[in-house]
């Protein structure tokens, strides 16, 4: 697989991560485009024996920190995403998704992104440490806080039967 192909296969994942970071489809695609450009420029820096996906995520993370995070958000976080997801789900699923998105949007950015990297991207903790440029101990404590935070939000927000753990 040449490097173009390798990068290509990661684009849907990069878009997804960008959308969770920014909550706005248009800016997310800007970030993806910038990431692709930067990745092609810096391709010589990628050590070819390692996996390309964590490297691309670290390129995106750095761009996000340097250029995007400082810009004010102009949309309700994840609102666009919620709309798009709901169009492909049944009504009941859509409600559940909206709940979850709403709960997710209450988390601080760093907790939301770590949940995505761990739970959805299923990246190794050591790769996540490299992507975010933090020690692995910080990855773990952030993950622990994120999961507990989301659990609290879910327990408080939804006394609905399907979120209540029966005792």
């Amino acid at each position: 697989m040449n490097h173009h192909d390798a990068i290509t296969t990661c684009i849907p994942r990069l878009r997804r991560y960008a959308l969770v970071l920014l909550g706005d489809r248009h800016r997310a695609d800007d970030l993806v485009q910038d990431t692709l450009e930067r990745a092609l420029q810096k391709f010589h820096l990628w050590r070819s024996e390692s996996e390309i996906r964590p490297w691309l995520f670290s390129v995106m993370h750095n761009l996000h920190v340097d250029q995007y995070r400082t810009q004010p958000r102009h949309l309700d976080p994840l609102d666009t995403l919620g709309f798009e997801l709901s169009t492909r789900a049944t009504q009941e699923d859509a409600l559940t998704m909206r709940d979850l998105l709403q709960q997710l949007s209450q988390l601080p950015d760093e907790q939301r992104s770590i949940l995505l990297l761990v739970a959805v991207e299923q990246l190794a903790y050591k790769d996540i440490a490299r992507i975010l440029g933090i020690p692995i101990g910080t990855v773990m404590s952030r993950l622990s806080r994120a999961r507990e935070h989301l659990r609290r939000i879910q327990e408080e927000a939804a006394p609905t039967p399907h979120l209540k753990v029966m005792t």
Partner: peptide
């Protein structure tokens, strides 16, 4: 949590 996040984001 993990499962529902995966299910929500996978279609993307």
């Amino acid at each position: 949590q993990t499962d529902s996040l995966q299910q929500m984001f996978e279609p993307m």
